[in-house]
Design a protein around this nucleic acid. Structure first.
Lengths: 226, 226
DNA sequence: GGGCAAATGTGACATTTATCACATTTCAGA
DNA sequence: TCTGAAATGTGATAAATGTCACATTTGCCC
């Protein structure tokens, strides 16, 4: 736990950028930064949702228990609010958040956050925009994932890692095969086989967890055609 | 198109209930009710999102083009806002909305709606709650659907129709087999076969589009175990 | 009511994916 | 460095689902 300096924070959310100086002071008094290591649970499905979680740095998986096991709903990269829907939408967390790499989270008192919504229209509007954009992204991903076969889904995740998360064609895969299977709703064996296939065909190189995308165009094709 | 009387409207959204008398007058001046028949498109993917659509009465499917065809993202029953995420989240509609039965929609000027968000904190908060609850429901459904096999997915939809939409174990199915297949991401043949199976096993009776659920307990089991 | 387009039912077969079993590799902690 | 648990790779087989083809039914419009 660290004493935050929200005013000086260079990683404020677009909404927090719109807070007044007084409001930022209030935020500082009602906010606590906690550092999580890879694998640490940030909040857990079934527990009371009492704080807003803001991912300042790091990478997090948001996941929920399903009929046959865990389902990864989305990856969240910093900076981003982590669980607005589960904090506002229900008293109890409907899903969990777990750090995939070392991450810094600011926990903000729910009362304070709600006060900002009530008193600062720009802040509220920015939060609404954030919720809407996230939902659009979810819909897009949901539609894609549900209509593609496994190689297409896996290709989509690799491309997303490369383009959105790490912005490089070489990166350390932050998910193991089991997590990948939770993400694309399949078995870990299928993930293993498909990654092997990608390697054999020279589309990627896997060195332990380090992945290099060699033939991005082919991966795109696999992703698009499903 | 009809002259709305928002003040007297008995179907106001929870958010609109929190508007002041003045704001309701403003709403009346910036709102138009349009009636849609079964099959009519309310707003279409790819077109500019210029109004808030509020479903006053009726039933609507929200759907998006995917890699291999249409995907039904969710059914919306009245009363409910129809496409907040696509109206706020992007200039262009990311998905379509189509009436499944005759429906009444109030189109609200986006500027007016945004003004309410900025000036009325309670209204803004209520909209945020609405967005969050919808997203939680989506996550739940997404997780279930992605981990269940086809009979489980179809059973879930039938139970949803019975419990949530029509509140009866006998109802007119508002989706044809093709739409059902767009909903659970399969082929229309598979839908046809599974519905036949349900009938043969005496779980449901199908008379044209009228469905009667006979053995709800078995349908629940099929839905839960996937 | 007749005729036509759309929707539905169903068999045969191909493809995809899950499951089970077990070998091998990796990695963290003693 | 050793060691055991966790993660991964891979073959064989079963189960689920898609695809194609075509018959039948339904519903709508004249």
């Amino acid at each position: 736990m660290a004493n935050p300096e929200c005013k000086l924070c260079g990683l404020k959310s677009p909404a927090a950028e719109l807070l007044t100086s007084n409001e930022l002071e209030k935020l500082e008094l009602n906010c606590a930064q906690v550092n999580f290591k890879k694998g640490d649970v940030i909040f857990r499905e079934g527990t009371l949702a009492t704080n807003i979680a803001y991912l300042k740095t790091g990478l997090v998986k948001v996941h929920m228990k399903g009929p046959t096991g865990d389902k990864i709903l989305r990856l969240m990269k910093a900076p981003s609010y982590l669980g607005l829907p589960t904090t506002f939408g229900d008293k109890v967390n409907n899903y969990s958040a777990t750090a995939l790499i070392d991450s810094h989270i600011c926990f903000i008192s729910l009362d304070t956050f709600i006060e900002f919504i009530f008193k600062n229209g720009s802040f509220a509007y920015e939060i609404i925009l954030d919720l809407c954009k996230n939902e659009l992204a979810d819909y897009q991903k949901y539609t894609n994932m549900s209509q593609k076969q496994l190689p297409g889904r896996l290709a989509e995740i690799l491309l997303c890692m490369s383009h959105e998360v790490f912005k490089s064609n070489r990166f350390e895969l932050p998910l193991n095969n089991n997590e990948l299977s939770d993400f694309i709703s399949t078995s870990r064996e299928s993930v293993s086989r498909i990654l092997s296939d990608f390697s054999k065909e020279g589309i990627i190189i896997m060195n332990k967890k380090e992945i290099t995308i060699l033939k991005e165009d082919i991966l795109e094709k696999i992703s698009i055609k499903g």
